[in-house]
Amino acid sequence: MTLLLAAEMTETEVWVANSFFLVIALVSIGAALKMVTTKNVVHAALYLLIVLSGVAAVYVILGAEFAAATQVLVYIGAILVLLLFGVMLTRAKIGADTDLDYEQKWIGGLVAAAMGAVMGYSLWEAFSDVKLPDDRLVQRTDAVADSIFSTYIVPFEALSVLLLAALIGAVVVARRD
């Protein structure tokens, strides 16, 4: 993939990248739609897997390879498994379930459409003629590491504490007695 994104992309390469993006985006959006409408909880988790993989691929197209790797490791490897554990621990029905949604779905649709409309309009107004630089470099992992452990060391440490707190909190909340 890195080859695809080497500096000084040719027109062909841009075209290829765009085609890749289009396919990935359409698949992800379709999977996301299925995820929020499916009647089967386990299927929903699997559709989420497709979306998360698609997002990881988009990261690669954008040159954020480390983020893509983390996405795969953390989201697909950990979070999704965690969610599946949740599905199992709460004894969700394996197979179709009729009682997954509210009756008035149109409210959710309306709100989501309204948000989509305002966001779409403002994005169109603000960035309709903005192009990504063609000669951009892949953001190297060592640069990411440098940045995290120098400029962003304090947020990083705070995040570590947050994770610890979440760990302890989850244990405290979920334990049996």
Binding site: Y102, I107, G108, V111, A112, A114, M115, A117, V118, M119, Y121, S122, E125
Partner: peptide, 20 residues
């Protein structure tokens, strides 16, 4: 909680609309 979420997202959308 869902009603609150509806209100929150709806209000956010309205607010953005007003800004626009």
């Amino acid at each position: 909680v869902r009603q609150y979420a509806v209100l929150m997202f709806g209000a956010a959308a309205v607010l953005v609309g007003i800004f626009i």
